[in-house]
Design a protein around this nucleic acid. Structure first.
Lengths: 130, 130
DNA sequence: CAGAATCCAATTCGATACTG
DNA sequence: CAGTATCGAATTGGATTCTG
């Protein structure tokens, strides 16, 4: 549960203290969740629908991490049944720009990347599994 | 060993086919290795020195992935002892721009992020470990 | 020198069941 | 509705040993 494991020192290489956010960017679901919140606040189950494939557990965890990093707010309404809204903070919105540029770069260059992967894969003879 | 495991469909959410590169950006060592190669080609053991803390195994794996994605070239010299040079491809250099911008964004906003983390951590009472 | 192979520990994630 | 708790499987990474 949000294990406060201390960051090993070697993570300080090159990327400096930015490891934690890079981990967020690189992890399995954060970008999808942030993307889903672009258009405005969503409730837990709305998010779960939009981010196809995510489990309840991972949605909860991802939201907690994003909240901890100050990228997402969590607003509870003490109604019955309970209702919780998630929304991007100004910081979360600002993060969108560099992240989108990176994603766009990848999309623009995906043809070249995939070509490289194919040519790599064919000379690295796939080991027969027999 | 470079398990050619097929990417599960759910990874196609929001980030589209760019998952593989995002994984590369987010993984533990790729950015450090790319950063080390910025100034020019390096040999295996030179890289190992510059990227403090990386194990032989992870350096090998990371380089293979980067090579497969077309971001790094591997040049072998059939000398004794053998010598292998790694260098960024033009594609690898181009990736540097959006990645650096992201890293810079994080650095510029690290104060705000860390403040958010601290305030989150103190209201989420740390469970005593006794 | 530049790795490949093996083994093991830690982390991550999904499925399922339960709750205020 | 919006979670929490628990478990097991898969993935990831480190340490060590061996090799052309």
């Amino acid at each position: 549960m949000l294990s406060h494991s201390q960051t090993p020192e070697y993570r300080q290489t090159v990327t400096g203290g930015s490891r934690e956010i890079l981990d967020r960017v690189g992890d399995k679901w954060s970008l999808s969740v942030i993307g889903a919140l672009r258009a405005g606040p969503l409730r837990f189950n709305e998010l779960k629908k939009q981010v196809t494939g995510i489990s309840q557990r991972m949605l909860t965890l991802t939201l907690r991490y994003l909240e901890r990093d100050g990228l997402v707010t969590r607003t509870m309404f003490a109604t019955i049944p309970p209702r919780v809204d998630y929304a991007l903070t100004p910081l979360g919105f600002k993060l969108l720009k560099p992240v989108c540029e990176l994603v766009e770069w990848v999309q623009e260059n995906s043809a070249e990347i995939e070509a490289a992967q194919r040519s790599f894969d064919e000379q690295t003879v796939p080991v027969p599994l027999t």
